[in-house]
Amino acid sequence: MGNVLTIILQRLALGVLTLLIVSIVIFVAVNLLPGDFAQLILGQGATEESVNSIRRDLGLDQPMVARYLTWLGGMLTGDLGSSFAQLNFATNMGGANTVTVLDQILPRLGNTMFLAGVTAVIAVPIAVTLGVLAALYRNTIFDRVANIATLSSISSPEFFMAYVLILVLAVINPIFPSLSNIYDGMALSDRLEKTMLPALTLTLVVTAHMMRMTRASIINLLASPYIEMARLKGMSPMRVIVKHALPNALAPIINVVALNLAYLITGVVVVEVVFVYPGIGQLFVDSVKIRDIPVVQACCLIFAAAYILLNLTADIMSILSNPRLRHPK
């Protein structure tokens, strides 16, 4: 077991290192802006004194490395700075009315997690079941139709799926609301109902991918000798797959699930905008439009962290579920 622990610790260290470098990339990218934040906030007509005063307030007069370290330290302690959006710098910089980035992000992060969670709960069982069925009945008409359907749903843009679902399930047959106005203190059933359409949209996109990978990994296994043995001793095809193929296909399937959850992170942006779902993706896009740099920076780092974390999980899971890697010769 000691060996696995070393491998996992190595991966974790690598993940942290990657995140650190990514944070540098994000920081440097933002600093490529012409002029600096102070000019950006105040616009063209600002006087020299006010620009300088804001520059001092934000610490922009310090060298870049020092600013990076301050920013990183803030990130680690949960102090993400103040948002530009509702900030009147002249009067209340650092005052009671300052909206911090954390205030904006925290509730929305929870909402996004909820959406991703609901999607995963719906998508994973469906995808694995369909994948197993497609592998079982491969090269039949069912498999062909499933292949065409999944390929189509992978390659269409998310907003196309979203609007088709709105059309069918919200407008023509009013089953779910097309606007997901979630707020705090909502009953869970209400919340679920309002989350359903965005979750279904993401499900459509993610399921297709997971199902294809599940099918491929099971078909790969079906060529192994022990499967032939099981078949020759007279096991039914379903039992062969569920008892022999599936446990061995678990590693790639877990991998695919984790990778697709990572994909959800980006898919969420467009879908949240379509359904006006108050998640972090929508906040990100809104901040991009009004150039609220601190929020953009923080969101970007959160997305990247989640992405790296999920990829790391996929990696570690596949090590844990593979006996050959667990007990290296």
């Binding site: 470098i21 933002v30 896009v285 901040s287 991009v288 790296i308």
Partner: peptide, 15 residues
């Protein structure tokens, strides 16, 4: 590649 592409694109588009 460690940064999701759509997110990175949006960040760079802001700048």
């Amino acid at each position: 590649m460690a940064i999701p592409s759509l997110i990175f694109a949006l960040l760079l588009m802001t700048i």
